[in-house]
């Protein structure tokens, strides 16, 4: 019976977000990045052009604004997905 668990995450592809909420997603993405970076720095990691686990260097230990567009897209998409989910679950997000 347990083998038949087929997870079905909610599809949010039909949810539209206003410009305001897109900006909110950007702020959330930045915060997620800062949380990750702070933890890394506290563990003794520093900036390095290439990731090196032995020397604890990571190329993403830079301000969110300086990440590549590709990396920002990835972070943004997570926040955008969360906001869409909140709307889909029947809630409003407003100031």
């Amino acid at each position: 019976m347990l083998e038949t668990y087929k997870p079905q995450p909610i599809d949010t592809s039909d949810v539209e977000l206003s410009d305001e909420l897109r900006e909110l997603a950007e702020l959330m993405a930045k915060n997620v990045h800062d949380v990750w970076a702070q933890a890394r720095i506290q563990q003794g990691w520093t900036y390095g052009e290439e990731r090196n686990d032995r020397e604890k260097t990571h190329p993403d230990l830079i301000p969110y604004e300086e990440l590549t567009e590709e990396e920002k897209e990835y972070d943004r998409s997570t926040s955008l997905g969360t906001l869409k989910l909140i709307l889909k679950l029947g809630f409003k997000i407003e100031r």
Partner: peptide, 17 residues
């Protein structure tokens, strides 16, 4: 934490209706 973050960024979350 996600909901709190949205709140701290200045937004309220309320049920529709």
């Amino acid at each position: 934490n996600t909901i709190k973050l949205v709140n701290l960024l200045g937004y309220d979350i309320v049920k529709k209706g």
